[in-house]
């Protein structure tokens, strides 16, 4: 069994790789940086903000056997007032979070390297349900993934038996989340990446359309669906009005 995980060198991606390795998968980790911890996963270096790098990675990935499980997890963020974040940062967010995973997925599919019956996961964000004032381009990029997954899901399942899952993680205890949360936000309420990875993999293997690891994530998604405007307002109070810094990865 062969798995591909993007952004597997840290945070949630690293936890996903570790679990897949323990499950006996041959794992390929596509990341810009070397892994934080030693890992037996195969490492393919790729800066997802560069089209040349993505093309090269696609050449490498399509020159070996196909994958049974692929998780597009890598992502960056920029938080702050929209008009105070540079155009380059906004462009990078769309490139890394939306364009690169969709290009990689489409490229692998075109080359027939996502095997029949495989599982594909896209890590989106709960902001798909709640809105995310203070991270408008991040929200845009994550919505692109959720909608792309929804667009392809039925056809791929019917014709190739490939099941596509969108993952909507809530706040995780990763370096990424800590950098972008307002100061003083309570880290203890966040889920450990390892626990999230377990739930996410279970859902992806089962081929569920959505994966919302944890009760908090499910409550947020539910509230966002029944009262979208109220939720966006709440997010503004919770996050935007407390933003004291502009942070771009």
């Amino acid at each position: 069994m062969r798995a591909l995980v993007t952004g597997g060198s840290a945070g949630l991606g690293q936890a996903l790789c570790a679990r897949l390795l323990a499950d006996g998968f041959h794992v390929t980790n596509l990341d810009r940086d070397l892994p934080d911890q030693a890992s037996t996963a195969e490492y393919v270096r790729c800066d997802l903000s560069s089209r040349d790098a993505v093309d090269k990675a696609l050449m490498t990935l399509t020159s070996s056997d196909g994958f049974d499980l692929v998780i597009f997890n890598a992502g960056i963020s920029a938080t702050g007032k929209f008009e105070e974040i540079s155009t380059s940062s906004h462009a990078r967010i769309i490139a890394v979070n939306a364009e690169a995973p969709i290009s990689l997925c489409a490229g692998l599919m075109k080359a027939g390297k996502i095997d029949n019956g495989a599982r594909v996961g896209f890590v989106s964000s709960l902001s798909h349900f709640t809105g995310y004032p203070g991270a408008a381009s991040y929200a845009a990029s994550k919505d692109a993934l959720a909608v792309y997954a929804k667009a392809v899901r039925k056809v791929w399942q019917k014709q190739l038996g490939i099941k596509v899952t969108v993952v909507f993680p809530g706040p995780l205890k990763t370096d990424h989340a800590a950098r972008h949360a307002p100061d003083g936000a309570d880290a203890e309420k966040r889920m450990a990446p390892n626990d999230a990875a377990k739930l996410i993999l279970r859902d992806i293997k089962r081929g569920k359309a959505h994966s919302m690891p944890g009760v908090a994530a499910r409550i947020f998604a539910f509230l966002g669906q029944i009262a979208p405007k109220v939720m966006t307002f709440a997010m503004k109070k919770l996050i935007y009005s407390k933003l004291d810094k502009t942070v771009a990865d």
Partner: peptide
């Protein structure tokens, strides 16, 4: 699919920016 995704992105974008 990608057209839909590109427009889905704009939907989420406006939701956030309208609030901001």
């Amino acid at each position: 699919p990608v057209y839909a995704a590109s427009k889905g992105a704009l939907h989420g974008f406006v939701r956030a920016l309208r609030s901001e």
